[in-house]
Design a protein around this nucleic acid. Structure first.
Lengths: 120, 120
DNA sequence: CCGTATCCAATTAGATACTG
DNA sequence: CAGTATCTAATTGGATACGG
């Protein structure tokens, strides 16, 4: 019983996890628990407020993370994984692991192509 | 020993697998073995020749798939997974599985929000 | 502090035509 | 058959300013 590729659902999973910043956000929340907006922003140098907000909204809409607003001045908003979102953890960890190996693999590829050049 | 998020390598893995069509291409090659260009194109209605070529080149550059050119007229080019590429299989299958569940989860989310509306 | 709105630059993707 | 080239449309992302 092989998987029907025509009804490919890999993309469903991918859309959750992709975007330049989503995996980083998710790993932060998975490993460090609840974080507030400004903490997340600080831990991701280079991200703009607009992008962080957008990525967080998308993750919230998909029920991966939850947002808790404290009605106070100045405002305080905390983000954390939902139980459902935590079901993504194994995939994220596998990808992290594979990604680390892939960095090494790319180095080997570059190295052997340099060798080839020397042979010519 | 927790994972250092600052050196996040999930993105390394993601870059391989993302792009509107890459997961579909990879699942085709994983499940059906060697395929030629025109077969892949036929099995992905909606993809343009330009996009298919581009995605295939990127996967080839990363050593995930290999291209074999038969020097004949008309031309014949066959694509298949590399041994290295096949190490992605578990991740792709996990994502496929999670994706299927997520489709159901989204349906439940829509259903319960419809219930909410009726309660008002 | 935590956003939204707007404008603009850059990247990405489709349609189409052409080639060995 | 398996591409490349070109032009254009659409999407994405950054910078900046402003608001509750």
């Amino acid at each position: 019983m092989s998987v029907e590729v025509s009804q490919c659902k890999v993309e469903e999973a991918l859309e959750i996890v992709v975007g330049k910043w989503k995996p980083v956000i998710l790993l932060h929340l998975l490993h460090e628990g609840t974080k507030r907006f400004s903490e997340l922003k600080r831990s991701m140098p280079g991200i703009t407020q607009k992008m962080l907000t957008k990525q967080l909204r998308e993750l919230e809409d998909e029920d991966i993370i939850q947002r808790v607003i404290y009605p106070q001045v100045p405002p305080k908003v905390e983000y954390s994984m939902t139980d459902y979102g935590r079901t993504l953890a194994p995939i994220l960890e596998s990808m992290h692991e594979w990604g680390e190996k892939h960095v090494l693999h790319k180095q080997k590829m570059v190295f052997s192509s340099e060798q080839d050049e020397n042979v010519q």
